[in-house]
């Protein structure tokens, strides 16, 4: 009889230990290339899918392949027009696309967001008297952008309530265009559609 009580106590202790070990907070590094999905909001997984699609599409579009075989055109990126109801750091989408295109060795980019700092640096080189004037950067020497990348992100949300479940669907569409600045012609365009679904019990969060 005593042995039996001991076994029960041991099993209970083991179960309690395992339960609390499983419930305790854990901190560890995750894989940035494999982010989990916790909501229907726009997340890093969607950013990666969009950047992957847009880069692959642009690099393999025949007229663009023809142009980039001969030279590396200069491109400027415009801010993404965010038509969703969410606050999204859309600059990180275009940053990812720009980084991949630069690393492909096919395009060169101008960074308009650094214009203020560039002007300050050129003024510093020219006016403070610290820099050798034969090496100082001059105004009016930047290359002009040949192409402009414009993009927009839109969202459609639908909900459905059933007897036991609440369903939610969020549809995202990212559209990107490459416009020839001199002619105004759209040389390339593509879009990426993403659908995120949520099935939740009727009662609960």
């Amino acid at each position: 009889m005593r042995d039996g009580i001991k076994i029960i106590m041991f099993c209970g202790l083991a179960a309690a230990l395992a339960f609390f070990a499983g419930c305790s907070a854990k901190y560890q590094y995750g894989d940035a290339g494999d982010t989990p999905m916790y909501s229907t909001g726009f997340g890093p997984g969607e950013l990666q899918q969009i950047a992957d699609r847009m880069t692959a599409s642009l690099l393999t579009f025949p007229p663009i392949v023809e142009v980039t075989e001969q030279r590396r055109p200069v491109v400027v990126v415009e801010r993404v027009k965010n038509k969703t109801t969410q606050h999204i750091d859309t600059e990180s989408i275009t940053d990812s696309i720009r980084t991949r295109l630069i690393r492909s060795g096919k395009f060169r980019f101008l960074d308009k967001s650094r214009d203020g700092q560039t002007i300050d640096e050129i003024r510093r080189q020219q006016e403070l008297g610290l820099t050798r004037q034969d090496q100082a950067a001059q105004f009016g020497t930047h290359e002009a952008a040949e192409y402009m990348l414009t993009s927009s992100l839109s969202e459609i949300e639908q909900r459905k309530a059933e007897v036991w479940q609440r369903r939610k669907m969020v549809y995202y569409k990212f559209t990107m265009n490459l416009m020839n600045v001199r002619t105004g012609i759209l040389e390339w365009a593509d879009e990426k559609e993403i659908v995120k679904l949520k099935d939740a019990p009727r009662i609960g969060p």
Binding site: C11, A21, G22
Partner: peptide, 20 residues
Amino acid sequence: MKRIQYPAALVALLAICFGC
């Protein structure tokens, strides 16, 4: 007593498996 031991052992096993 055996009637209690087996469920207890099962609970412990499940808890350990769930934790791991």
